[in-house]
């Protein structure tokens, strides 16, 4: 177990290191003066003194006159101090502040949709594997769902439930007329805005998990331990339970592997619903060429995915006894 965890942590540390390095490397490898390039396209701060102020600030931050290793070290130092630079688009708000405001919305949207879709998809998949009729219906539907681009389902839901039926708002996290307070009106309004983006993420992921579980269960029911139990006259109930317990393990690993796709899906879903998470921020940053904000989003996404991966690893250790016993059951 210790070996398993150590290896995982090593991989994640390396990944983070690599990601930060990429983040540092890219602006420095672009042709020309990165600061001039960047400021040339800043659309917000228009007067000359503001531009000059920004230029000085970034020149200090980039430290282009220093040797490369010094620049690199400084970059890490700033990172550990939580200094991700200052947003040019929301000047002079520090990037870290902008991101801190967005992250709760991401958590609010992503955590329930990921967990519920995983849970419901696995259970439905297991049921589908049992009934031919349900299988013939759920399987094709699930394939269509996994083939649907996230933003398109979001657009369709927003259009149909938001515009045609007028049941849900289609923009923002809460009504403009309200101020964030812990009142019932506000919480209900928050949930009202949350529902459609949540549903579109939930529905697509649900399809993927249902297919995965169905295929895994069918595979496990054919496995030799299932056949042995059948030969010994064990009831279907016990055999199915064992198959499910075994099939859930690759689904947990699968969650870690799919996380990147789900996060990408959440980004575009936020764009569709103007939901003020990192995805929405990112679009604004890209449109306003705010590189520090883009970098910050990048780091936050990577960090979030790494933390989630680590949590999944911990869960895996709890669920798969083989990792606990020092037998490497899983090689990811």
């Amino acid at each position: 177990m210790r070996r398993y965890l150590t290896r995982k942590i090593l991989i994640y540390t390396l990944t983070f290191f690599l990601a930060v390095t990429i983040d540092w490397l890219i602006p420095r490898f672009m042709p020309g003066d990165p600061i001039r390039n960047m400021l040339a396209r800043v659309s917000v701060a228009s007067n000359a003194s503001a531009i000059q102020m920004m230029y000085d600030y970034y020149a200090r931050l980039f430290g282009l006159d220093l040797p490369l290793w010094q620049q690199y070290l400084n970059f890490w130092k700033a990172l550990f101090q939580g200094n991700l630079g200052i947003s040019t688009y929301l000047f002079p708000t520090p990037v870290i502040e902008v991101l801190k405001r967005a992250v709760p919305y991401d958590a609010f949207l992503l955590i329930p949709s990921i967990l519920l879709a995983w849970y419901a998809g696995n259970n439905f998949g297991a049921i589908a594997a049992r009934s031919k009729r349900l299988d013939n219906f759920i399987l094709p539907l699930s394939y269509v769902l996994t083939a649907t681009p996230y933003m398109w389902l979001g657009i369709l839901l927003a259009w149909f439930f938001g515009i045609v039926l007028g049941l849900f708002p289609i923009a923002g996290a809460y009504s403009f007329s309200l101020r964030p307070t812990w009142s019932w009106t506000f919480v209900l309004d928050l949930l009202h805005h949350w529902f459609l983006p949540f549903a579109s993420l939930f529905i697509i992921d649900f399809g993927g998990w249902a297919i995965g579980m169905r295929n895994m269960i069918i595979y496990e029911l054919e496995a030799e331990y299932s056949r042995y139990l059948t030969a010994l006259g064990a009831p279907q109930r016990l055999i199915r339970r064992y198959a499910f317990n075994n099939a859930i393990l690759p689904q947990i690993t699968g969650l870690a592997l799919r996380l990147g796709v789900i996060v990408a899906g959440a980004l575009v879903t936020e764009v569709v619903f103007s939901y003020p998470g990192i995805g929405y921020l990112l679009l604004a940053a890209i449109q306003n060429q705010d590189y520090f904000l883009i970098q910050g989003c990048f780091l936050f996404i990577i960090l979030g995915v790494l933390i989630a991966n680590f949590v999944i690893d911990l869960v895996y250790i709890v669920v798969d006894p083989r990792t606990r016993r020092g037998m490497v059951g899983e090689s990811a």
Partner: peptide, 21 residues
Amino acid sequence: YRFRKVSLIPQYAMNAMNPIR
């Protein structure tokens, strides 16, 4: 009848037991 009257030692004894129990 299975297990009580007729029983089987399968060819695949190496994988006959549920790996996570």
